[in-house]
Amino acid sequence: MTIGRRVAVIVFPGSNCERDVAYAMQLLGADPELVWHRETDLSEFDGVILPGGFAHGDYLRTGAIARFSPVMTEVERLADAGTPVLGICNGFQILCEAGLLPGALVANRDLKFICRPVHLRVESTDSVLTRAATVGDVLRIPLNSFEGNYVAPAPVLDDLENGGVVLRYSDADGSVSDAANPNGSLNNIAGIANGGGNVAGLMPHPERAIETVLGSTDGRILLESFVASLDRVTA
C-alpha cells in the first residue's frame, strides 16, 4: 500500500480538473495537495500531476505559457531525478511544450471539441501510468479536448515508437485503425512516456472513470499504476 504518499496537483490559472484529480488520488489512497503554479519547492512530494484545463487560457498556444510558470523549473528537476510526473490532457500538452515529453498536440482533425468515451489499448507497461496494466488491455475512458491531435516530426516519432507509446486509440476489441482514431493523432497515439518511464502524459481523463456510478472504472488501473509508482523512487 502507498497510503499517505504525497502528490502535488499543480494548479495553473485556468486549470479546471485539479479537484477531480485530487478526489481520485484520495480515493486511491494517496495524499493529494493542490499546489499553486507560483510554488518553487516540491521536494516534499512523492509525485506530481499536471491536471486538465486551459492553463493561462491556452492563449498563444496550448501549454506555451504554463510551461514558463515558476513551478515548472521544479517539475523539470523532479522529472530528471526520476520522480513520477503525470500530465493529463492540458497537463500532457504542457509537458510536451516543456520538452519533458516529445511531440505536440494540435487541433482535432474535425476541428470540433470532443467529449465522449474512447477505447484505449495498452501498448507498454514501462511507465508510471501503465505499470499495473497488461499489454493489450482495452480501457474505456472519456476523452475531453479540442487540441488532442498528437503530432511529431518523423525522427521523433520513430524514436518514440521504440517503447515510448503507452496508449493508443483503438476500437472496443483493441484493434487500432483510422476509424478508431477520434482526433487524427499520429499512429493513434493517446499516451506516451519518456525513456525512464517516470514522466507520462495522455489526452483522455482516467480520473473520470474511477467509479461505477460515473459509468466506467477503467481509469483506475492507470491511476493505481501512478500511485503504486510513488514509493519506487526518491528525488
Partner: peptide, 8 residues
C-alpha cells in the same frame, strides 16, 4: 512545419 497535420 511542412508535413505536420494542419486540420485548419
Amino acid at each position: 512545419k511542412d508535413g505536420l497535420s494542419d486540420p485548419e
